[in-house]
Amino acid sequence: MKIFADHDSRLAVLERKVGSFVFAGIGALLLLFVVIAVEQGMFASTTHLRFHTEDASSLHEGMEIRLSGFKVGKVVKIVLMDDGVIEADLSVNNEYLAHIRHGARLRLVEQGLLGDNILEVVSGARGQPALAAGEVLPFERQLGMAALAHDLVERLKPVLDNVTAATAAINQPDGLLQHATSVAVQAEKASVAAIELMRQTRDAIATNNLKLNQVLDKTDALLAKGDGVLDNVQNITLEAGKIAAAASEDLLPLMRDGRVAADDVRNIIRSSKEVWPIRNLLDAGGENILPMDSYGTSHVQPK
C-alpha cells in the first residue's frame, strides 16, 4: 500500500478526505452530546439541598421540583439512613436559588386525579438569607383524594358515635326522654285538673249568684284544691328546670353535631338516589290508588 501511495498521489488525497470526514463526524457527534447535555442542564450550575421524611412513598429519584410552575431542579438521590429517617438529595438550579431562601418549604403535590406527583417549593418570607449548599428544607405532604376521604371518615366517626350514644341514652327506660315524658304527663294531668277547677268555678258563679254564701264555701274548698294543684305544678316546673339545665350542657353540642351529620347523610342519600344504577332500583314515586277492599265493616247508609 505504501508502495502505491508513494507512486500514486491520488491515494494520498483520498486518505486526507477520508480522515477529514471521520473527524467531522466525530465532531458532529460531540456537538450533539454537548447540546443534549446543555438541554438536560448537565452543565448548569446547581446547588445541592436536602430534605428529611419518614415515608418515601410517592417519592422517586429524578422527580421534578417546581417553583411557581417552573422546573427548578430534581431529586438526585433518596437514601434510607441508619436511624430510619429518609434523606433526599435535591439538585436546584442556581438561577432559581435566589427565590428559595430560608423559610421555604417543600410540599409533595398530586397533579390532578391521574397526574404524577411533584415536589413544589413554597417560598418563605422575603428578605430571608439565602440557602447554603447541603441545607435541609422542611418537607410536607398535601392531602390527596384518598387521604382526604380517610380524614373525612375519621372526623365523622366520633360524631356518629356521639349520636349513637345520645340516642341510646335518651331511649333508656330511666333516660332523659322517659323522664321528660313522665313530667309532661304529670303536667298535663295538673293542667286538666286546673281547667276543670276553673270550669267548675265559672259554672258555680254563673248559676249560683243568689246563693253567695254557698258559693263562697265551695270556692274556699276549690281554692284549697287549687293550692294543692299549684304546688304540684310548681314542683313539676322545678323538676323540669333541673332536667333541662342538666341536659342542656350535653344535649346542645350533641344536637349540633347530630344536625350536621344528618344534613350530610341526607345530602349523600339524595345524591345517591340520583346516581345510576341506584335510581333504577328505587321507586319513582307517584300518586297511587289506596289498596282495594271489596269486603268489610262499613258505616255506609243507603244512597
Binding site: 412513598s57 410517592s58 398530586e110 386525579l113 391521574l114 384518598a146 387521604a147 346516581v275 345510576w276
Partner: peptide, 22 residues
C-alpha cells in the same frame, strides 16, 4: 402504580359509570 393513583382511577371509573345513565 401508587395507591392514590389506584384510588383516583377507581373514582374516575365510578364517575364514568354515573355519567352513563340518562
Amino acid at each position: 402504580m401508587s395507591s392514590p393513583n389506584k384510588n383516583s382511577l377507581l373514582i374516575l371509573g365510578c364517575l364514568m359509570l354515573a355519567a352513563c345513565g340518562a
